[in-house]
């Protein structure tokens, strides 16, 4: 598979959110606005690319029986790096995402890709897979955030589209997260079903 093919694969065919339904906690918890969703997606993508690359480099040095703990240590390391960098250079983002940054460690997407892709492929391909899956995740989170923001507060990326008082605030709150994602997955199902 070409490098581009790997990236496209992560974007559509194995889209982590709409197809694989992985990493649901940040998908629902951080998408109260498009910007928040995008920040979370990018933070996860950074961790994905780095951990995929490093795990692929180390895969032969790690005995099978301890591969999960080793992967987790590598992932947790990168998560902490991202957390510290955000705290230092983008404190506003760190405050918005809060607990969900350290929780990237237990995001099934990251460990899942390490297991199913990085452990079997070369470092460069693995990094590409990280980019693809990361982009797929980022786009999904941004779309969900955009829908919720637009329906709930009448804004898109913080810019006012229509008066806020017409918005249904529920979409910014907890129930809206579930409902928006439910409908988006249904739409994604419908579209891909037609093609196939």
């Amino acid at each position: 598979m070409s490098k581009l093919g790997i990236i496209i694969n992560g974007l559509i065919k194995e889209n982590p959110t709409f197809v694989l339904l992985l990493g649901m906690c940040p998908t629902l918890g951080t998408t109260s606005s498009a910007i928040n969703g995008m920040s979370m997606g990018l933070a996860t993508m950074a961790v994905l690319i780095c951990s995929n690359f490093v795990i692929s480099c180390l895969k032969n040095l790690i005995p099978d029986k301890v591969h999960i703990p080793c992967y987790i240590v590598v992932i947790a390391g990168f998560v902490t790096v991202v957390q510290l960098l955000l705290k230092a250079y983008a404190p506003a983002v760190d405050e918005k995402l809060g607990l969900f940054i350290p929780l990237i460690v237990v995001n099934c997407i990251v460990l899942g890709r390490a297991e199913s892709f990085a452990a079997k492929n070369g470092p460069i391909d693995s990094a590409c897979d990280g980019i693809g899956i990361g982009l797929g995740f980022t786009i999904a989170l941004t779309v969900i955030g955009l829908c919720r923001e637009l329906l709930g507060a009448g804004t898109a990326f913080g810019f006012s589209v229509y008066p806020e008082s017409f918005g249904a605030l529920t979409f910014v709150l907890a129930p809206g997260a579930f409902i928006t994602l439910g409908f988006l997955v249904a739409i994604f199902n419908k579209l891909t079903a037609k093609k196939g």
Binding site: K59, N60, L61, I62, P63, D64, K65, V66, P69, C70, V73
Partner: peptide, 13 residues
């Protein structure tokens, strides 16, 4: 690939 000996596992982790 390194084998699953205790020494290797402890060492790598």
């Amino acid at each position: 690939k390194l084998e699953n000996s205790t020494k290797n596992m402890v060492l790598s982790l």
